[in-house]
């Protein structure tokens, strides 16, 4: 087994275990910490695939930004509700069944899909290429994203504003 394969299986194990812990842990706060671990492990998978930029974005946005927001949400709602929030798993059996069905469907699908056997070679500095593409070929989607965020901000402000 090559070093790369060993790294992949190790990361896969961490990813699976932490993902399971997210949904199975009773304490909501622990769930969030496991989620952070799962997101970092995903960044590791990206690194193995030579997508350094994507890995950095994954850590910055998800492990950094999203997790912080979720923690805030838990702290604020616990104060509003006035009690510890626990995660209840009443539908474990049904959820497991659905997950199994999805797993089988994806497994069959991946086996039948024509996937390349070896990873295509990566040439040059990917981050630089992404930067160039964002501001040339993909400049319109890039700028449009700014408008999408503006609309989202306006909406958030509207709902957060106090009644007049």
């Amino acid at each position: 087994m090559s070093l790369e394969a060993a790294g992949f299986w190790g990361l896969a194990l961490v990813l699976l275990a932490s993902s399971l812990a997210v949904v199975l842990s009773k304490n909501l706060f622990h769930s969030v910490l496991y989620l952070a671990l799962a997101l970092v492990a995903t960044a590791g998978v990206f690194l193995l695939l030579h997508a350094e930029f994507l890995a950095a974005v994954q850590i910055l946005l998800y492990a950094g930004g999203v997790i912080t927001i979720v923690v805030f949400a838990i702290v604020v709602t616990e104060r509003l509700v006035g009690e510890r929030l626990n995660q209840t798993n009443r539908g474990v059996a049904a959820g497991g069944l659905v997950s199994l069905a999805v797993l089988i469907a994806i497994g069959l699908f991946v086996m039948r899909a024509p996937l390349p056997h070896a990873a295509p070679p990566v040439a040059g500095d990917l981050t630089e290429a992404i930067g160039r593409n964002l501001l040339t070929r993909y400049v319109l989607p890039f700028e449009l994203l700014a408008v999408v965020f503006l609309a989202a901000l306006l909406g958030a402000l509207f709902f957060a504003r106090k009644e007049e």
């Binding site: 449009l144 999408v148 989202a152 909406g155 509207f158 709902f159």
Partner: peptide, 10 residues
């Protein structure tokens, strides 16, 4: 699609 939808959600 997202620009249209986000505005309409609000």
């Amino acid at each position: 699609l997202e620009l249209m939808s986000l505005s309409l959600y609000v």
